[in-house]
């Protein structure tokens, strides 16, 4: 494992931690998209089916379990916690799942490296992860007063993706025969989706202003 990959995973972990802490400390999930969290849950479930079939390393197994458990915790809080669920912006979080899930599923059925259930679901998770942030970005755009922590959460998620690109470049240069085109293209698409957000995040940070995204 190289430094970019480790830094990427740690940033991913930190992003989830920030979200858990924000919701738990403020007892509010204002500005957080339940749709994005549920899409991530679907991504993790489909991708980590190999927890049962394929042991890679202790690190790998523990991280997978943390990602699954933390995402399901957030969903549980947003749906069922008696204080937190009241703060969910249900009317604003209107992005439709099917617009993301169906195209990704079709693409995974058509474009995969092996036509088996495990492989198609794994590929589906790669495609879906690339676009799963969209409901969150739309919700942020509709939220007038973006919570610092919610902004940081999205920024950390975007940074994790950027670090993964560096990881791929590093691996491509150091490992013979290392190539994975589907993952690379999806990962690049995913990172591009964050560029607009990054622009406004850095601008607001520089000017010491509260983050707001233009409609």
């Amino acid at each position: 494992m190289n430094i970019f990959r480790l830094a990427g995973d740690m940033t991913h972990l930190l992003s989830i931690l920030v979200l858990l802490l924000k919701i738990n400390a403020t007892r509010s999930c204002r500005g957080v998209s339940l749709k994005t969290q549920e899409l991530y849950a679907l991504v993790f479930v489909c991708r980590y089916l190999d927890l049962f079939t394929n042991f890679i390393s202790m690190y790998n197994t523990i991280m997978k379990i943390i990602f699954l458990a933390s995402t399901f915790t957030i969903i549980y809080w947003m749906r069922f916690h008696k204080v937190i669920r009241v703060t969910y912006d249900r009317e604003q979080d209107t992005f439709r799942y099917q617009f993301l899930v169906l195209p990704c599923l079709v693409l995974a059925l058509l474009l995969n490296s092996e036509f088996t259930v495990m492989e198609v679901l794994w590929t589906f998770s790669i495609y879906l992860e690339a676009v799963a942030i969209l409901p969150q970005l739309v919700l942020l755009q509709r939220t007038n007063n973006i919570d610092n922590l919610t902004g940081n959460y999205v920024f950390l998620l975007g940074s994790y993706r950027a670090l993964y690109i560096l990881n791929w470049i590093y691996r491509f240069l150091t490992e013979p025969n290392y190539r994975q085109y589907l993952v690379w293209i999806s990962g690049i698409v995913q990172t591009i989706i964050y560029i607009d957000f990054f622009y406004y995040y850095i601008k607001s940070w520089k000017n010491n202003e509260k983050l707001s995204l233009p409609a």
Binding site: I56, N60, Q180
Partner: peptide, 10 residues
């Protein structure tokens, strides 16, 4: 081969 390599990432 491609799929196997990718699966050590998260």
């Amino acid at each position: 081969v491609q799929a196997l390599i990718a699966k050590d990432e998260l």
